[in-house]
């Protein structure tokens, strides 16, 4: 029959329309549904409208989510090396970066002139960065990680869009807070919560003591 297809199509639309209101009833017409119900609405059982009211309720990011990289530094209340970089300026991230948006100045001891394992300067041009995550994937010291902070909109790019070391550095506990499972896995692979070099140092000392 001519027109039956359109009626069926309209039926589908009507179903969605009704579902939206049924969904509203289900959550008691609350604008923001309660936290424990949120995964249901944003998961596979969603019916009807499933809008996230962005500035008021924000989707938490998946643990593996990646945006702009950041540098891990030791917690400021760390007993031995507060605020020290995890980065040893080995340059692997700069080499593996596909659009080459990482600039590193290797640290030098001002007296001896020999390289020290901390970068003097570290820049990431976020106008070039493609959020691919290769730097974090290949960093042998777990020192560069992908951030979850996506609210970076600005009015001026000349001053705000080249991130220097200070802007990039974030405490280790920040990484633990945004990706607890991965932080734990990495710590396990590393053999402890400390920096790889510190762990090596400790192992060496322990060995020396034994001898």
């Amino acid at each position: 029959m001519y027109g039956s297809g359109i009626l069926r199509g309209l039926g589908v639309t009507l179903k969605h329309f009704v579902n939206t209101y049924l969904d509203d009833i289900r959550w008691g017409f609350r604008r923001h549904i309660p936290d424990e119900a949120f995964p249901i609405r944003q998961g596979l059982d969603t019916r009807g409208v499933f809008t996230v009211e962005y500035p008021d309720e924000k989707l938490a990011m998946w643990e593996r989510f990646r945006f702009i990289p950041f540098l891990v530094i030791e917690n400021h209340d760390h007993p031995e090396r507060p605020g020290h970089d995890w980065c040893t300026s080995c340059g692997i991230c700069a080499k593996v970066c596909p659009p080459q948006c990482i600039w590193i100045v290797r640290g030098n001891d001002p007296e001896t002139g020999r390289p020290v394992p901390e970068p003097q300067a570290f820049y990431i041009d976020i106008d070039i960065c493609m959020n691919c995550g290769l730097c974090a994937e290949f960093c042998p010291f777990d020192a560069i990680k992908m951030d979850h902070d996506y609210e970076l909109a600005s009015y001026d790019r000349t001053s705000a869009h080249i991130f220097d070391k200070q802007r990039l550095s974030k405490e280790f506990r920040y990484w633990q807070s945004i990706a607890p499972t991965r932080a734990e896995e990495e710590a396990e692979a590393r053999g402890g919560w400390e920096h790889k070099d510190v762990l090596k140092q400790k192992a060496k000392e322990a060995k020396a003591k034994e001898n």
Partner: peptide, 11 residues
């Protein structure tokens, strides 16, 4: 300017 590659819808 909205940085990101690509910026997520929330960004």
């Amino acid at each position: 300017y909205v940085p990101g590659c690509p910026p997520t819808p929330q960004a």
